[in-house]
């Protein structure tokens, strides 16, 4: 792929113009003015323990899928739960349920959004300290994230802390 150092990412480039304008109308022009949480990186990434987390609706085939049937009945509702994904999971182990993207690519190669294999390689090569035993998925369509934040994320955070996670790569769907 080409590289262009002067690039400014257009997050709406792949979206139909009408939809992009409709979604973008509520995004302010000015920079965010509120408080942004900040945890400095404590050590070089070659010694840091990572977990991955994506909003792509990935679940293990042995776990319940994300509930897209209720969303079909209630279009403003999105499943507020999360799933644990082992660091060793591959395409044969996962299901993907998400009503806002084409999930075929993730089913073919989970690394396009939850790059477990790439991070295992980085660990073997000494580029990162370690990939934690568990990574995570939730469901990115959350018009009202209260339940996700209050009920789901505390458990995810506890699990990360128990596995010594020091940095998380978040990949949006």
């Amino acid at each position: 792929m080409d590289e262009n150092s002067a690039k400014v990412v257009d997050g709406f480039r792949f979206m139909p113009p009408s939809l992009g304008a409709w979604i973008g109308k509520d995004i302010p022009e000015e920079p965010f003015g509120g408080h942004i949480p900040w945890t400095p990186l404590q050590k070089p990434i070659s010694k840091t323990t990572f977990a991955l987390m994506t909003s792509a609706g990935i679940s293990l085939k042995t776990d319940p899928p994300f509930d897209i049937e209720r969303e079909k009945r209630e279009p403003t509702w999105g499943d507020p739960t999360s799933r644990r994904i082992p660091a060793t999971a591959g395409p044969a182990d996962i299901d993907v349920n998400h009503l806002h993207i084409n999930t075929d690519y993730i089913k073919q190669d989970i690394n396009v959004i939850l790059p477990l294999k790439r991070f295992r390689e980085f660990e073997e090569e000494g580029l990162i300290g370690r990939l934690a035993a568990t990574s995570y998925s939730y469901y990115g369509f959350q018009l009202d994230p209260k339940e996700l934040l209050a009920q789901t994320m505390p458990g995810v955070i506890s699990s990360m802390q128990a596995e010594g996670v020091e940095a998380v790569l978040l990949t949006p769907a």
Binding site: I27, P28, A56, I113, T171, P172
Partner: peptide, 27 residues
């Protein structure tokens, strides 16, 4: 991905990439 949402919610660190939704890491 849509890094513009950063202006709405405030995110500690954003590595913005102009790739299609569902494949932010690549093909």
């Amino acid at each position: 991905m849509t890094p513009e949402f950063h202006r709405e919610v405030g995110i500690p660190r954003v590595a913005a990439i102009e790739y299609p939704y569902g494949r932010p890491v690549g093909e």
